[in-house]
Design a protein around this nucleic acid. Sequence first.
RNA 1: GCCGGAGUGGCGGAAUUGGUAGACGCAAGGGACUUAAAAUCCCUCGAGGCUAUGCCUUGUGCCGGUUCGAUCCCGGCCUCCGGCACCA
Length: 828
Amino acid sequence: MSEKNKERYDPQAFESKWREKWLETGLYNASSHDARPKYYCLDFFPYPSGAGLSVGHCRNYVPTDVICRYQRMNGRNVLHPMGWDAFGLPAENAAINQGRHPSETTREYAANYRRQMELIGVGYDWSREINSSDPEYYRWTQWFFLLLHRRGLAFRTSGYQWWCPDCKTILANEQVEAGKCWRCSETVTKKELDQWYFRITDYADRLLEGLDRIDWPERIKMMQRNWIGRSEGSTILFPLEGQEPLEVFTTRPDTLFGVSFMVLAPEHPLVGALTTDDRKSEVEAYAAQTLKQQEIDRLSTEREKSGVFTGSYASHPITGEPVPIWIADYVIMTYGSGAVMAVPAHDQRDFEFATKFELPIKPVIKPVKGELAQPLAEAFQEPGVMFNSGEFDGQPSQAGGQAVTAKLAKQKLGQAAITYRMRDWLISRQRFWGAPIPIIHCEGSCGIVPVPEDQLPVKLPEIAEIKPSGTGRSPLANVAEFVETTCPKCGGPGRRETDTMDGFACSSWYFLRFTSPHTKDRPFDETEMTYWSPTDLYVGGAEHAVMHLLYARFWTKVMFDEGLVPFDEPFPRLLNQGMVHAEDGSKMSKSKGNVISPDSVVDKHGADTLRTYELFMAPFDQPVTWSDQDIKGVHRFLSRIWRLAMEAGNLAALDDAEIDPTSLEPQQLALFKEIHRTAERVTADMDRLAFNTGIAAMMELLNRMYLHHEAHGMDRVLRQAVKMLVLLTAPMAPYMTEEIWSRAGGAYSIHQQPWPAFREAMLQRETFQLVVQVGGKKRDAIDVPVDIDADQAKELALNSEKVKPYLDGKKVLKAIYVPGRLVNIVVK
RNA sequence: GCCGGAGUGGCGGAAUUGGUAGACGCAAGGGACUUAAAAUCCCUCGAGGCUAUGCCUUGUGCCGGUUCGAUCCCGGCCUCCGGCACCA
């Protein structure tokens, strides 16, 4: 390398300059809808935390940025927006912990996130930045609430629900993980309150069915399927003396003849009526105890079965035999009808219960092959053949169950039924920091009255005391100016609903707002929404599998039904980025103090090195371990490009089309072909989001370029190679390539250049290595012309000096030629 | 327990999905340059072996199978990660 080109790669010298210029010129702003094909790439919008971004967040934002830059170079109108999921528990808790107001911390933390995103060169369209706590945004969240209300999908009811004693609010089922609050990990309890719900259960089947039409990680689909929990079976009525029959749900109507007792959930409404006087004190004590301890670990599978007899009997719907009715906490009130028919011979839980309380165990299903163990050591739960079942004996489980249900249906004692585990989405929060639920309770006789659309937004009052009270009422309840209002219907006095909406309501439609974020009179502009939607790619972590990703699908289906959007799946393609672990393999967390910030990495190596490293370390969706050692490798790679580029001089004037391959020396031609082959490989890798192998391909080219440089110096083919490599690396290393481009006489910006094309003709090879195998083992490799035919190839193979010894004294049975690859000689 | 995903060198990972296993990078060892260090560059690098500039055997979690040929397909196990967990 000559003296004058000794300037080293120093990202600090130019990164901030380009960062400012990109922002100034709005380089990454999407156009309004136009004739170009669009590409809408969306990242999960984050709640801004005081801790700032880690290199883990970058694993989400950098790859999507690279995809967007690539799509832009390919002529797409690209929308890559960013905003803030600012309302909700996470943001509010963080603020309270700091002793500050969330409106203030949100602003500050969001600004820091944005600074960091700009720092690492992610090209968001900041003209579309949105914030879900902005009244201009949440008026439309409230508008959607009214839409759901109008369609009968928002309702208010009372019940025992999950309550987080730390966050002092009710939570949705989705937001309780293994008995703990999803935000603060406090063990949840139950509280009875009037609450607002969205009727997501109405959409259970459609939410299930839609999963088959979308390209999502199998894991996430599986989690949603589990969560929805569809079970097919029957409801069966067990007549009771002197009252309405007892309803149960079962997936195994074929086991009906094996019922030896019934079990109700302790909270079941019939418990009182069914308890006989002599059992009363015991039953009430058990029910009370269940209610108290259920918060702790009614969830545990390990617990021994417990329960008490009510003293009553139901009659079997077919045999009429009396069946004793028990209560036990292993039966849950909120699933099915809160009551089960117990078949101990064929259900393990019932088996354990029957064993403990010495209740009869009557087998009615036997295996298709073989016999049941005598006596049963555990329940036989597989399907089989019915016996001990009167007229149904000999029927297989599936058909027999249907026959049983059909017979019951005739007597109006049963029918086929489907049950779901998913419950309706509870959206009331007794918290300040959320969109107020736009409802007024009339003090007169109008009851619950929705706030008229033209009175939206219902704004949060500006108050200092926002801490949750713990009384089961939101802090808004203490703000008279907020609460006291007039009833829109009768004009008399009214009181505003003081609960706010779950933060997940805000994130259930934000992807539509990005398409026209400044629209004033509607949630989004129809033309823009139709042009941009649905998203082409949605990327984020797996932690929202049964929260945000389920809720947003639900809202979209409601909007589809309302005719607001022309699609019912908002995210046809979803990817989860892999997590970044700390160097010791543990999770990065604030409490462990092992979080690596992008700031520190940019400071040390520059933004492009951080970006390229994140892309190179592993496939995009794989978890990775951060390594200060490995990052040096990609830094070296970028430095090596830089050095060659500095020597290459003016690149802008170079034109690939002007190079006539026939005029090149053989070694130049070899490199020239390598350039085009690399362009092809990188293009294919970008299309399948295989950034790690794409970078590897570029590293290979670079290695060859250095060898060429050694032998031939900076000739015109090498300069062409430099130009190609700079364009191919532009999406990954936007700063360095912009600097090189500008020094090399290129017009601003390199990020508006077309993605390099490759010449098909240059991908052709004249020869290839023909591998010769004997019995599947490689024995030779011969350079042969590409157009060699099978007979020629086989002849060459058979005559190879290296192969001959292996054919000695053997009989050649056949030779298989795989075009362009190998000949395998089969001997005996 | 049930469901989903994955097992390839010292490490991260490649392999056009049935066709040369280990691309690319890190680490390690050796060398060049340098007063020295950093930086840079070159060579070696799965294991075992041999008559060693080359060649042989073996090798993709384990055991079988299909095939001319298996990291890839089939059957049976083992391990790890993630999710759900008394849902009748």
